[in-house]
């Protein structure tokens, strides 16, 4: 049953002489939640940027649903069904919550200036569909009561949720979450974990970059560990917790060997 949704083969990215990502072989199955952890600057966000086409990779390939999507433009990748949130929240600040989500419907609609000017039938049906989708996505993450709020006026935790709602509105198969729990209080973190579990049980695959270990250990089916742009470990949460290479990456050399650092 475990069908591979997305995989990368020897994916690399160098900025000048620095290898931000080096020969990364990664995969995620349908409906799976995979967490990516690693110290700051280990290339996690770069990896996301490569997957979504925002930066071009210097080597390797990305395969999504059996098709090679390396070098595709970001808007094409979104249309194929990969959607993401951002570490430093990137909402459309001056617009309302509902408008933020409606913008995300862009890749699933196709009305042109002509349709908009004459309010053609297509324009009408798309507007209705969008309104439904907006409603559904807001309820999914629990911000339906903030519909007309300006995005920048939302509390921090809700902005993170709005980003998830917005990602969801593009009808993705795979959602990439970049530190969704950052800045959230314990209650919000609980709610976030519920949302991610619900996503997974509804058939979405989720890749999650996260520093909050309680969140990661609780919900991830599998964990990948990055360090200095390389993937150094991959496995079940329990395996990763015990893995000496991982402990060394996080705590330094002395700590891992015999504990008398």
């Amino acid at each position: 049953m475990s069908e591979v949704l997305l995989s990368t083969q020897n994916l690399s990215k160098s900025f000048g002489g620095i290898m931000a990502n080096k020969d990364i072989n990664f995969h995620i199955n349908r409906g799976e939640i995979v967490a990516i952890i690693g110290p700051n600057g280990s290339g996690k966000t770069t990896f996301y940027n490569l997957l979504t086409g925002i930066t071009r990779c210097s080597g390797g390939t990305i395969t999504f649903e059996g098709k090679n999507i390396t070098g595709k433009k970001p808007q094409e990748i979104t249309k194929l069904g990969i959607s993401r949130t951002f570490q430093n929240i990137r909402l459309f600040g001056t617009l309302s919550v509902a408008q933020n989500i409606e913008i995300a419907r862009h890749c699933r609609t196709s009305s042109t200036m002509w349709d908009a000017l004459w309010h053609t039938k297509k324009y009408g049906t798309e507007k209705e569909e969008n309104a439904e989708a907006v409603e559904r996505c807001m309820e999914y993450v629990g911000i339906a009561d903030k519909k007309d709020w300006k995005a920048t006026n939302l509390p921090y935790g809700m902005q993170r949720k709005l980003e998830i709602a917005r990602a969801l509105a593009t009808d993705p198969k795979l959602i990439l979450l970049d530190e969704p729990a950052a800045g959230m209080n314990p209650k919000e973190k609980e709610e976030l974990m519920d949302i991610i579990r619900k996503l997974s049980s509804d058939g979405y695959s989720v890749i999650l970059i996260e520093h909050a270990m309680r969140v990661v250990m609780n919900i991830a089916d599998r964990i990948s560990v990055f360090n200095y742009g390389e993937k150094i470990a991959d496995g079940l949460p329990t395996e990763i917790r015990e893995n000496p290479v991982v402990i060394q990456a996080y705590l330094g050399k002395g700590a891992s060997a015999d504990g008398n650092a």
């Binding site: 925002i54 990137r90 699933r108």
Partner: peptide
């Protein structure tokens, strides 16, 4: 508002 986010929304 945000070009990078616009790309990510498929614009």
């Amino acid at each position: 508002e945000d070009e990078i986010a616009a790309y990510a929304m498929g614009v």
